[in-house]
Amino acid sequence: MTKLTYREAVRAALRKALRDDPRVFLMGEDVGGYGGAFAVSHGLLKEFGPERIRDTPLSESAFVGAGIGAALGGMRPIVEIMTVNFSLLAMDQIVNNAAALRHMSGGQFNVPMVVRVATGGGRQMAAQHSHSLEVWYAHIPGIKVLTPATVPDAYGMLLAALQESDPVFIFEHATLYPLEGELDEAAAEQMDISRAAVVRPGSDVTLITYGGTLGKTIQAADQLREMGIQAEVLDLRTLRPLDARTILTSVAKTHRAVIVDEAWRSGSFAAEISARIMEDAFDSLDAPVARVCSAEVPMPYAKHLEAAALPQTDEIVRAAQEMVPHHG
């Protein structure tokens, strides 16, 4: 067991991948000399050299396209995109090439590329650096979408992604980088990325979340426990393919669900989860599914406005309280 930060866990996984597999290389804006926008790749240029830690021009379309080409050519590229807002410039490469080539070539070509993307708000980075657009990627067949929310997942999911033969997007919520946690490398290297995790068991209400809002959701569950409400917390971990079974099993037990998602409510991943519950667990429900999402505004810069726009612990507590009898 080692104690380290989420940032250090991603770096450790990068280092291990670069050491173990000569086909692996990292590229993106400022990953080399600057050490990465969030200092994830700090020190790697010195250790592995400019061939394998490659700074790119400010053109997401160009360097994601280059990653696709390298993957087609037998490499195992790891592409870093500084924020999910910038990833939109590469959407054409991602949707029309990366996700579609295996299908369009009748299985002759595949794109084993890993794309790491920083996401989410809470850092006063305003409306061009702070959104949670994972759902747009989770919409697309042909790619996998991972959202590590813990130190072990930050380490293990990157290594697991490199074992996949199709494009994998890893969304790292930027407020998680300083998060400290225990890492058992051997266990994390064996992890199953296909299952959601029951982080806290409970019987009265299921709180479903992923990524940056897991910590707030666990805090909410702790507060609810003091009020006598046993909340079960699910960390989805992987948005596509979705582990619906774990969700449905939990809702069948608790009869109530609150979905916490930092994205905007309309068309959110929370909407997808809510629909699945309605479709497959309707007769288990004792209350309408509730969603706690971000306010539908471009992310404000001012600290108090940004906090007001993002989902917060007390809102999660209130949503759960309102649906559990005699606690509303």
């Binding site: 929310a149 064996q190 995790a197 666990i218 960390d235 007390d314």
Partner: peptide
């Protein structure tokens, strides 16, 4: 029974947020 997912429990997020006004 079933394979248990690799993630362990998570300590609460360290980023202290201002108490949010009610939306």
């Amino acid at each position: 029974e079933g394979p248990s997912p690799g993630a362990g429990p998570v300590p609460p997020s360290p980023s202290p947020e201002h108490a949010a006004p009610t939306i």
